[in-house]
Design a protein around this nucleic acid. Sequence first.
DNA 1: AGATTGTTTTAGGAATACCTAAATTTAATA
DNA 2: TATTAAATTTAGGTATTCCTAAAACAATCT
Lengths: 219, 219
Amino acid sequence: MSTVSKEDYLRVIYKNLEDGILVNASLIAEQLQISNAAVSEMLRKLSNEKYLSYVPYRGIQLLQKGKIEAVKLVRRHRIWETFLYEVIKVPWYKIDEEAENLEHSSSDDLIDRLEGFMNNPEFDPHGHPIPRKNGFVPKQKKLVKLSEFKVNKSGFVRKVNDQSSELLHHLFEIGLTIGKKFSVIEKRNFDNSMVIEIENRNHTVSEKLAQNVFAEILR
Amino acid sequence: MSTVSKEDYLRVIYKNLEDGILVNASLIAEQLQISNAAVSEMLRKLSNEKYLSYVPYRGIQLLQKGKIEAVKLVRRHRIWETFLYEVIKVPWYKIDEEAENLEHSSSDDLIDRLEGFMNNPEFDPHGHPIPRKNGFVPKQKKLVKLSEFKVNKSGFVRKVNDQSSELLHHLFEIGLTIGKKFSVIEKRNFDNSMVIEIENRNHTVSEKLAQNVFAEILR
DNA sequence: AGATTGTTTTAGGAATACCTAAATTTAATA
DNA sequence: TATTAAATTTAGGTATTCCTAAAACAATCT
């Protein structure tokens, strides 16, 4: 049986794999804010129960059972996020936290109804694809990290990482949100920070920040 | 600290007290579907933590701390129920179960937003009052149990107990839902069952059922 | 290769919230 | 009042999920 706790592990694993990140025990410990020892134990359990395969130091892969479960969770999470944002008007940087709680407490039926209510959205407010009921994950255009944009290039924000609500809050403040157009004005070699223009205003962003924003290049 | 489990106890206690029912340990055990032993233990804890006062065989009373918590929970529960029913169109007899899960996983902020979205409803779809943010509970007109209606009397359904989703489903089937008008056509002395007319159709209802429906008498 | 650093596991515990079975206490009834 | 019935508690366990500290192991750097 899958519990709230196991669900958290599966979701975190899936989300990182989705971004092409190697998932090991300590990454999970850090993201879930629990001890390495606890993660080690839980990974053994999840592995015994055939949710995933785990080679220490080499990373985790989800097995069919785990993937199905994880996709379901991510679906729930993103449908709630979209709903909270689009329908209830919960601020952009708050929806992730709220959805994290709701995703464990709603029936499949309710999720399907919410989806229908919103007319089957494909992407959540952070630009992540919403898996469909049948497990299909909408494809996204190939995106480039903002940190990899060259000077004078422009683009549209299509996706942002939603790990930190403080980051999201800041993005919101400077207007760097989904769909917005921006241009790179300047790039500093010593720290890779850049100055970008959004809606006729210039903002300086750090490399760290720029690595969490994905955009479609405009040529 | 209050956990999901403690919240369940507090909600059940509050709901029964609200209906003027004496709440003892075995009632809770039955309604939460857990052993008497577990309830006994938990009541000791909740009592130590000043959520309630408990005199064995004499019943439970909520103390200030417990009442505040319970009212908050009931508020959450009923706001979710109303939302699911009115906005998402989840069937009447399914909302209670769904809300039971959601009530533990939503912030105060979200609850307030849902309330605002619906324009501050006073009663949930089963006719129960929705406590306001400040703890005030909307008053209801004095209601009479359907089982106490005499032959030839008519009334409007104003409240139904939502313990059993099967009961609700049945009420839904025969059209005995909030706001509906009915008349008592016949009453049988040997088992206290009655025949009532709803929307020009006659239905036989048991005493048990009639004890769970509350109505406003029409004179 | 050896030392250092980072990752993972083990050992031993704690908290929460359940369980069954048996004992005890109280209330209701004959 | 004595007995029976019902409600409650105790005793002894279990499962889950987390913890810290220490040990073991693997990868990387010099």
